[in-house]
Design a protein around this nucleic acid. Structure first.
Length: 584
DNA sequence: TTAGGGTTAG
């Protein structure tokens, strides 16, 4: 009685954890907090029988460990892992599968084999899922060769997988010794040495054999196939499908996910007809396609700008195979309309979707805003944004705000854009690189270089903020939040400054770029300089006073020319524009 | 409840 008032059953809170662990937007962090709160309360009871039903079990630990893995937080993983015995719990095979993911997230491919060895040494019954996790991890690293070797060995009924993985480590080490050293940061080393005591003996010991033979199943094949797909190896993807169909193990037969992966690979390569053939094949052999499959094909047609085919497929979905399109289908089509500059069509699909009772998501709203933003109708984008604010099911986010800014900037409406940015700040959203990038483009378009100076000041201030959590002051003040501008933003700002003959600022920006390892496009600036400013300061008729005022700017121009590598007064050489010189 | 498939937002 007392317990129920304070603490939920472990099954209940563990279920919440499992959802949070892989949820976006701070889900994993929330999972950690929840786990901490509950275990803290549980610990307060000296009589454990009082809270027996609420005490964490292995599944609960696995869920919170999964949150750590998703955050790539090895330290927290270790801390919780070491708390398990306190509750009389032992890590199980799932725990180690999650540890495989942790290694992957921490970029420690070299440790994967030692997790497998640890499981074997501890005598924890190995299951197929561990092999799934391992294969997925290697695919994630793009190391398809190792996966191929694993799969081949499994097909041959071999049990020396650890040996194969050790050899892969050795090859990596020989290939790229420096990276190997870079990867092993000190914190990581101590965490993993505790998680995997077998690391200490390391490679000196003979790699253990798997306790039994595992034949690859369709999941393993499909994971490898996904690796091929990600690397654009369409032929290998298709060949893999053929190989799967030809082998006799029924567990390795292609299923709807395998086929969908093949279709996805073909669609990515723009091969719509072959993709349709695979779809037909699925129907023929009775492996039904689902909404995912159709959505992939829809996207393919949209990317190929074949909206009519997309529309036809949408109809076919609903009428022939009885798969109702969902919000993703419609978002895809709305975006497809944007690709063919059809904002009216985008709106039509948006409305059709609502008519069908399919609720738009924030992505739907933002995509529709994009339709209007890109077609020069910022007012309509604004209207959609207002609708979005009114819809209680969705929450406008930074991306939506940015789209609003983009709409105005596309037309060079800098003042409007700045008002939106002010509003977004007041609503607790801090401009990011995208916001500033749009604004910079708007400023460039509007030819208001003075605005670029203000923007550069703001960007520079935030760039110079070091570390995290340096925020202080009101919510609308983002000046203390760190920001790392990207190449595009800086290049645009520099471009504006060069065109406006703000050479001192231009130099400042390019210097910042170089300091941060972003190579400025000197050729471009050279061209602009030659085209726009080569005759600068050449007027002989200006008054002495005017000429004096120019001196500063001239010095900046000379410095900029020096940086560009153009002949300048620093070398004492005369330089004049020769039309043939401009393409240097 | 870890591990294979899809969409969107500068």
């Amino acid at each position: 009685m007392l317990r129920s008032g304070y603490l939920p059953h472990v099954k209940a809170w563990s279920a919440v954890l499992s959802r949070l662990a892989s949820a976006p937007d701070g889900g994993p962090t929330l999972a950690l907090k929840l786990f901490d709160t509950i275990t803290r309360r549980v610990r307060r009871f000296s009589d454990v029988t009082m809270v027996a039903d609420s005490r964490p079990d292995t599944a609960a630990f696995n869920n919170v460990l999964n949150a750590c893995a998703n955050l790539g937080d090895g330290k927290m993983f270790l801390k919780l892992f070491e708390e398990m015995p306190e509750f009389g719990l032992e890590p199980d095979i799932l725990t180690y599968n999650i540890m495989i993911k942790l290694c992957a997230r921490c970029n420690r491919k070299d440790l994967l084999v030692f997790v497998l060895e640890r499981v074997i040494e501890k005598g924890i019954p190995l299951c197929m899922t561990t092999l799934h996790s391992l294969v997925a991890a290697y695919v994630g690293f793009g190391d398809l060769e190792t996966v191929e070797r694993m799969v081949q060995a499994m097909r041959e009924g071999r049990r020396d997988l650890c040996k194969i993985l050790r050899e892969a480590n050795l090859e990596d080490f020989n290939e790229d010794e420096e990276n190997e050293i870079l990867n092993s940061n000190q914190i990581g080393v101590s965490v993993f040495e505790k998680l995997l005591p077998n690391l200490v003996q390391g490679s000196n010991r003979e790699p253990p054999l798997l306790p039994k033979v595992f034949a690859p199943d369709s999941r393993i094949y499909t994971t490898l196939m996904k690796g091929y797909m990600k690397q654009g190896r369409v032929t290998d993807t298709v060949r893999m499908l053929e190989a799967m169909r030809c082998q006799d193990d029924s567990k390795g037969q292609p299923d709807h996910i395998t086929y969908t992966t093949v279709i996805s690979a073909l669609v990515k390569a723009g091969s719509m007809d072959p993709a349709r053939q695979v779809l037909a094949e699925m129907t023929r052999i009775g492996v039904p396609a689902n909404r995912f499959t159709y959505n992939i094909l829809l996207k393919g047609y949209c990317q190929q700008l074949q909206i009519d085919n997309a529309k036809e497929l949408l109809k076919e979905m609903a009428d022939d195979v009885n798969i109702e399109p969902d919000v993703v289908s419609y978002n895809t089509l709305i975006d497809g309309c944007i690709l063919v500059d059809d904002s009216a069509g985008a709106l039509a699909f948006f409305n059709e979707m609502r008519t069908k009772g399919i609720m738009p998501t924030k992505i739907s709203y933002t995509t529709l805003m994009k339709a209007f933003a890109l077609s020069g109708q910022p007012k309509l984008a604004n209207k959609v944004f207002d609708e979005m604010l009114k819809d209680p099911r969705v929450k406008a986010d930074l991306i939506a705000w940015n789209m609003l800014v983009e709409g105005y900037c596309r037309l060079g409406l800098v003042e409007e854009a700045k008002k939106v940015i002010q509003r977004m700040k007041e609503n607790g959203f801090h401009p990011d690189v995208a916001t500033y990038g749009s604004l910079a483009n708007g400023i460039s378009l509007a030819r208001k270089p003075g605005e670029a100076l203000l923007l550069w000041k703001e960007v520079k201030e935030r760039w110079e903020v070091k570390g995290e959590g340096g925020s202080s002051g009101s919510d609308s003040d983002s000046s203390s939040l760190p920001l790392k501008p990207d190449e595009e933003l800086l290049a645009t700002l520099a471009d504006i400054c060069v065109r406006a003959a703000f050479f001192q600022k231009a130099l400042e920006i390019v210097a910042c770029m170089e300091e941060n390892g972003i190579p400025p496009d000197k050729t471009k600036y050279k061209k602009i300089y030659v085209e726009m400013h080569s005759r600068m300061f050449s007027s002989k008729h200006a008054s002495q006073a005017r000429q004096d005022r120019r001196r500063e700017r001239k010095r900046a121009a000379e410095a900029f020319k020096f940086w560009l590598g153009l002949p300048n007064s620093y070398y004492g050489s005369e330089w004049r524009l020769d039309p043939g010189d401009s393409d240097c």
